[in-house]
């Protein structure tokens, strides 16, 4: 039950972060484009001597420009950093991380098993260390009190992604090792496919092969 909640949380978190980042940058582009359009109308009205239109466009411009989106880029970066750290943990669960498999694929029996255990343990070790030094780093930043330049949020909150994401990733590697020891299974994910979506390839190939 707890595990189901954790799984869902992980999935929802990274999907939402992705959606937010896209929406944010899209809105920022539309915002800037609208401003440019309003200014063009002002200039056009000025040339064609239409003071009413010019005034209207000017006030529209001022209204749109009162929404400040200079923080959008920074926000996008932080959203993606959080997505990357938690997404990497999710990636372990679904087996998305790529390795150089040329030797392991040629091994059999105990040697293969030992190698695989070493490989997964490497993941546990690395992510564990990162979680630990990341936590110290967050503590350090928390004491320093830095804020980000655009959003002006506390940097330690931003940096929290490193230890939190890595701790979760470490846990996922432990899970993977446990699964392997119990069943000998390694999760491999089909990345080309999106789970739950069947691609309708239709009437391919065109007119058949010759």
């Amino acid at each position: 039950m707890m595990m189901r909640i954790l799984d869902r949380f992980e999935e929802i978190l990274i999907s939402v972060l992705m959606a937010l980042a896209v929406a944010l940058i899209f809105v920022a582009v539309v915002h800037r484009f609208s401003l440019g359009f309003a200014v063009d109308v002002v200039k056009w009205a000025r040339v064609h001597d239409m003071p009413a239109l010019q005034a209207a466009a000017r006030s529209t411009f001022a209204w749109i420009n009162s929404f400040k989106l200079t923080w959008a880029q920074e926000a996008c970066i932080y959203l993606f950093v959080w997505m990357a750290k938690f997404g990497a943990a999710y990636g372990v669960r679904i087996g998305i991380h790529v390795g150089v498999d040329l030797l392991v694929e040629r091994l059999t029996g105990t040697a293969k098993k030992a190698m695989t255990i070493i490989a997964i343990s490497g993941g546990i070790l690395f992510t564990g260390i990162v979680a630990w030094i990341g936590a110290e780093f967050v503590h350090h930043t928390w004491k320093g009190g830095q804020i980000s330049a655009d959003l002006e949020i506390k940097m330690w909150i931003v940096y929290l992604a490193v230890p939190a994401g890595s701790a979760l990733m470490c846990f996922r590697f432990v899970q993977a090792l446990w699964l392997y020891l119990r069943t000998g299974e390694i999760v491999q994910h089909d990345i080309g496919a999106v789970e739950g979506i069947e691609d309708d390839i239709g009437d391919f190939p065109l007119g058949g092969q010759r």
Partner: peptide
């Protein structure tokens, strides 16, 4: 008026270009 001006992240520079009627852009 309406010029999109690139700035480095800074609230002061943002306010400076807003005051000129320009559109500050962090890039």
């Amino acid at each position: 008026l309406g010029l999109k001006m690139r700035i480095q992240s800074s609230k002061v520079l943002e306010a400076q270009f807003q005051a000129l009627g320009a559109v500050p852009q962090v890039m």
